[in-house]
Design a binder for these strands. Sequence first.
DNA 1: TATATTTGCATTGTGAACGATTTAAATAAC
DNA 2: GTTATTTAAATCGTTCACAATGCAAATATA
Lengths: 146, 146
Amino acid sequence: MIEEKCKLENQLCFRLYTASRLITQAYHPLLSEHGLTYPQYLVLLVLWEKDAQPVNDIAKRLLLETNTVTPLLKRMEAEGIVTRSQGKKDARQVIVKLTKKGRDLQKKLTNVPETVGSAVLCESVIPETAPGLFGMLDDIINQLKR
Amino acid sequence: MIEEKCKLENQLCFRLYTASRLITQAYHPLLSEHGLTYPQYLVLLVLWEKDAQPVNDIAKRLLLETNTVTPLLKRMEAEGIVTRSQGKKDARQVIVKLTKKGRDLQKKLTNVPETVGSAVLCESVIPETAPGLFGMLDDIINQLKR
DNA sequence: TATATTTGCATTGTGAACGATTTAAATAAC
DNA sequence: GTTATTTAAATCGTTCACAATGCAAATATA
């Protein structure tokens, strides 16, 4: 005698968790080809929009903590994708900048969004319905981030 | 000159990834109180519906691999929540069963779904719109799982 | 029945996530 | 100007995810 609300099928979180994992897996072959992971790709998206940002700005943008982002950035530094240097105005800050290799990745990865997009395309995710889905997820995110 | 499709804000995956993480965080205080993690809670949901399942059935239900589920189950065994025993019909299988402690957790955690649910409640996630969101996520998941 | 293949689970190694704590620099309060 | 507080990153420890590989039991094939 299980309550309906306690069934796996009725859990919003399990759907989000699974959908997130499966889409990340769809990115994997496209990114690993260039030695990147999905979270590292997110960092690149942030830096391509605006280069030379402190760790904290990147973390805030991705809604992550610095203890997640710092080791990630160190790996990217080791790969020669970014540099990390002490801030001039504020010596506590570490400024993350793209290297040439990091900038060049932008062209090489231009087609990633539509490649993954077409893999995800289905009845529910088409140009007409996507805004609705985006809006709902944004509302959830805004509700939960403090 | 960044292409629109390459902006963080236009990425479906980033939304799913973030929403999933934030909801999991919302579960954390409710679950850690009982020494559970979110993936462990998912295993319990599966076992509460049907006890005594082989590792593979649990993994398939959660769309995870055994190399993720096995160590997770070992931790749950160490906590005295489940037992793991060799299958009788098929000696390769490991059958996972709830202990009394594992069964008792069901009552203690009955109110978890609505507690998290109310935390997630917003304009977009209300009884009327939830089915739409559920359906879209299901479509994405079905599209991507092979 | 002997060999090959498949299947169920485990092991290893890497990279996230994240709570908790630490260090040093910047700012505020006294 | 000294002390207290806040802030930016980093460190540590634990638990996922997951690719790759290994191993033994079950099944298929020769």
